[in-house]
Design a protein around this nucleic acid. Sequence first.
DNA 1: GTATATATGTGTAGACTGCACATACTATGG
DNA 2: CCATAGTATGTGCAGTCTACACATATATAC
Lengths: 140, 140
Amino acid sequence: MSENEQSSGNEARGRRGGEFRGVEARPRNWLVPVILLSLREWNSYGYELMERATTFGFEAMNPGTLYRTLRQMEKEGIVESTWETSRGGPARRMYTITDAGMTYLDFWAKSLEQYQRTMETFFRMYTGRPPGKGDDETGE
Amino acid sequence: MSENEQSSGNEARGRRGGEFRGVEARPRNWLVPVILLSLREWNSYGYELMERATTFGFEAMNPGTLYRTLRQMEKEGIVESTWETSRGGPARRMYTITDAGMTYLDFWAKSLEQYQRTMETFFRMYTGRPPGKGDDETGE
DNA sequence: GTATATATGTGTAGACTGCACATACTATGG
DNA sequence: CCATAGTATGTGCAGTCTACACATATATAC
């Protein structure tokens, strides 16, 4: 009931910042852990993973980016793939998460936790601005 | 001669994940809002900002990266600078946040909030793994 | 004047990713 | 058979971010 409230928060990444260049908080390498998390639930392939990625704010995931990332991930050993041709339609490259991939996910989660604390610091500074303290000083 | 001895704090960011390549959750462009936030409190210059940046996880901020970012920010109009030579030591380029910079910060904060929600989704998926549900299925 | 601390910069290369484009297989309709 | 559309995977290129190494200049202490 209370879970899926991110209905259509998609525009967030589009053009809300107007004229600014990088006014958007997204982590680098976000795509890798998202893919791993999906694969941990069940094995899958690029085309399907693309759809699932939207859950994490990748509104219109670019195919090229995703496939390239998957190949890279395989080269690093955090996923493995085999061709699946035993059905109608074009062949699918089915991906599986490896043990190394699990480890990667754990590292990522730990790092994300720490980063969350950093963000709290940011918000404390951002909102909790004490009046009469930040005007014209030089910092010494 | 004196190299800039930033030797020992580096491992923190470099090798935390062991053999993995990008196992670290940090948003791209993190440095820009951090600088803006610092400048909102009081005007400052590169060398000083470097130290303050450590608060936000830049353990051993690289001078080059910081100075280049500051120049870029000025080109974009979110900060302004003037030389300060009225004291001992090398001249300092003093930076001030502009109105556009304030706006940038607001956009960033909003974006960060949404990103926090995305991270919660991630953790729900990561930790809330129901037993006996994620082993060998193919997704169809 | 040499070393050190302060202060600001450039050059280069690698990584991430958005956009455009290319390829291939299968099913359906004519 | 051929054309077309949907599924599925992939490459090329360019822009951006940033880590690392290196270069420069000023002032103070010795």
